[in-house]
């Protein structure tokens, strides 16, 4: 079976600085994969290469079965992407945002209409469909942004810190949406600074200074490092690197 994300020796240099240093990743279809790392470890650079926004300096990456460098359009058609902020247009209403993205993803008018109705209903936003996104609570926005990133039924969805600043109940509802997407076969590639959320992933990789310092299931990683939580694993790996870099 084709891997959802298949990365070999992927590297990106900026001048003399190596932001991503020969990383390998193999993510199965339908997996919830957590991508952790300290600020500046290279996570964002790696994700930008995986979604075709930045070309690698070396190595290969295939996403949804296509090469990110030579088949960028094929990749883009099969992925969804949600960043912590700026995923939605504040000056458009809930429904207008869905329609806009439906158009960008090349859905037909009928598909857009049907999927908008289903999504608004599922999110409980029926009475807010005509509200400007600016005026709805952050938690609703993030759930809407995730649904919009899933509008064209991508096979892989990238979520970059989707739950930052969100209330604890919404944060958990968000993870239930992630589980539901994974149960439907979508691969979820997610970054977070909440270490309890790292425990919700099927597998994790932890980046330190451009390299992947550890990879495995949460249970494997905790046993490998002999600690009780992923937070402790993260601190063990990232603390020496942080001290060295003066972060």
């Amino acid at each position: 079976m084709t891997l959802a994300i298949d990365v070999h020796q992927l590297t990106r240099r900026f001048g003399s600085f190596t932001a991503v240093d020969a990383i390998d990743l193999d993510v199965q279809q339908g997996e919830v994969f957590g991508f952790l790392g300290a600020n500046g470890a290279g996570k964002t650079t790696a994700i930008k290469m995986l979604i075709g926004l930045l070309s690698p300096s070396g190595g290969t990456a295939r996403v949804a079965g296509f090469d990110v460098l030579t088949q960028t359009e094929e990749v883009r058609r099969r992925i969804g992407y949600m960043s912590q902020r700026f995923s939605l247009y504040d000056d458009l209403t809930v429904r207008e945002n869905i329609t806009l993205y439906g158009g960008i993803y090349g859905l037909t008018d009928r598909e857009i209409r049907e999927r908008s109705d289903a999504m608004i209903d599922k999110l409980g936003l029926a009475s807010s469909a005509k509200r400007l996104v600016r005026t709805i609570p952050l938690g609703w926005k993030q759930k809407l942004a995730f649904s919009v990133a899933m509008l064209h039924r991508p096979s892989v969805v990238f979520l970059d810190e989707p739950t930052g600043g969100v209330d604890p109940i919404t944060r958990r509802q968000f993870w239930e949406m992630i589980y539901a997407a994974a149960a439907d076969g979508t691969t979820v590639f997610v970054t977070t600074h909440y270490m309890d959320e790292a425990e919700y992933c099927d597998r994790l990789s932890i980046m330190v200074d451009g390299r992947i310092a550890a990879q495995g299931t949460p249970v494997e990683l905790k046993s490998e490092f002999g600690v009780a939580s992923i937070d402790d694993v993260f601190v063990q790996l990232a603390r020496p690197a942080a001290a060295e870099a003066g972060r």
């Binding site: 300290a38 600020n39 912590q84 810190e161 930052g164 937070d231 601190v235 990232a238 942080a242």
Partner: peptide
């Protein structure tokens, strides 16, 4: 500490 990683937050 919003948006700051878990290690830098502890520090």
């Amino acid at each position: 500490t919003t948006g700051v990683d878990a290690v830098s937050r502890r520090e």
